[in-house]
Amino acid sequence: MNAFRLAGDMTHLLSVVVLLLKIHTIKSCAGISLKTQELYALVFAARYLDLFIHFISLYNTVMKLVFLASSFSIVWYMRRHKIVRRTYDKDHDTFRHHFLVLPCLALALLINERFTFREVMWAFSIYLEAVAILPQLVLLQRTRNIDNLTGQYVFFLGAYRVLYILNWIYRYFTEPHFVHWISWVAGIVQTLLYADFFYYYIMSWKNNVKLELPA
């Protein structure tokens, strides 16, 4: 495992920790899109189907379990926890996320590495992850007062994607047989979605003003 990959996984983990901190400790999910969180839970469920079939490493298994458990518990908190769910900004989180699922499934049936159940589900999870941030970005645009933890959560998620691209470039030169075009193309699309957010996040940090995205 190279340094970019490890750093990418760690920022991904950090984003989850930041979100859980906000939800568990502050008991607030204000500014967080339940739609995006539901899509992530679906992404991990579809991608980690081989969790108990193919053993890669202890690291791999533990991280998969962490992402599965955290994504489903976040959805549970936002839907069921009697304090947290009251802070959910339902009126602004209106992205029709179900309409992302079917096109991703159709694309996975058409473009996959092998036409098997697990490979189609893997491709589906890659496509869905690429667009899963959209409801969150839309909600941020509609949020007048983006708190620091929410901004940091999205920033770490975006950083994770940038680091994964650097990891692929590194692997391309060091492991020439390692080529997953599907995840590379989808990953680049996913990272580009953050470009706008990154711009405003860095500007607000540089100018020391509160983060706000133009509508």
């Binding site: 490493s57 998969k64 080529v179």
Partner: peptide, 10 residues
């Protein structure tokens, strides 16, 4: 092995 394309990423 070469060409194995194991999916070891998260």
């Amino acid at each position: 092995a070469a060409g194995d394309n194991v999916k070891d990423e998260l």
